[in-house]
């Protein structure tokens, strides 16, 4: 169905598709990293688990959550692109996405690289929803920070 007037940038088909069928659903049994994200403003929750391969790259991702379409779709898109990244690369990925949400231009090159995630640019027109879009990402950032603190 067509999005209500004025909301087609926010509720793009690809976003609704991730909301309806979130990818990488579930909690991994023996994760190396895990994070809990909570946005008390709207009650959105994300539980993120990840495993690392011997090469130090993320080889398993699972998330469960409840919340609005934007928070869940954004986390789903993120989970889809984490595998194969080192933790440093994952952190750079978070910084890149935060930059986009803060209004940084997305070059054609970057748009190609991030694929579906580019569809979240429409969220920028709705400032209160930026926090929703960021929830999965800040949860990832916290998970990496905690992993490093425990490991060191």
């Amino acid at each position: 169905m067509q999005a209500p007037d004025g909301l087609d940038d926010l509720y793009q088909d690809i976003i609704l598709d991730h909301y309806r069928s979130p990818r990488n659903q579930g909690a991994l049994e023996h994760p190396h990293l895990h994070g809990e994200g909570f946005n008390p403003f709207c009650g959105d929750q994300i539980h993120l688990t990840m495993t690392l391969g011997e090469d130090g790259r993320i080889n398993g991702v699972g998330f469960v959550g409840q919340g609005c379409s934007i928070s869940q779709a954004s986390a789903s898109m993120l989970s889809d692109q984490l595998k194969g990244k080192t933790l440093d690369e994952a952190e750079a990925f978070v910084r890149m996405f935060k930059g986009i949400m803060q209004g940084e231009e997305v070059s054609e090159e970057l748009e190609e690289e991030i694929g579906e995630i580019a569809s979240l640019q429409g969220v920028r027109q709705f400032p209160v929803r930026i926090k929703c879009a960021l929830l999965g990402w800040t949860t990832l950032q916290d998970a990496i920070r905690e992993y490093r603190e425990t490991a060191s």
Binding site: P4, D5, L7, C42, G43, C68, I70, R129
Partner: peptide
């Protein structure tokens, strides 16, 4: 449907409600 999404669509129709706890 999350209350936040309800509130967003209503706002587009000029209707102001509260969502959350």
């Amino acid at each position: 449907v999350h209350p936040h999404d309800i509130g967003q669509v209503l706002d587009q129709a000029g209707v102001a409600i509260r969502t959350g706890h």
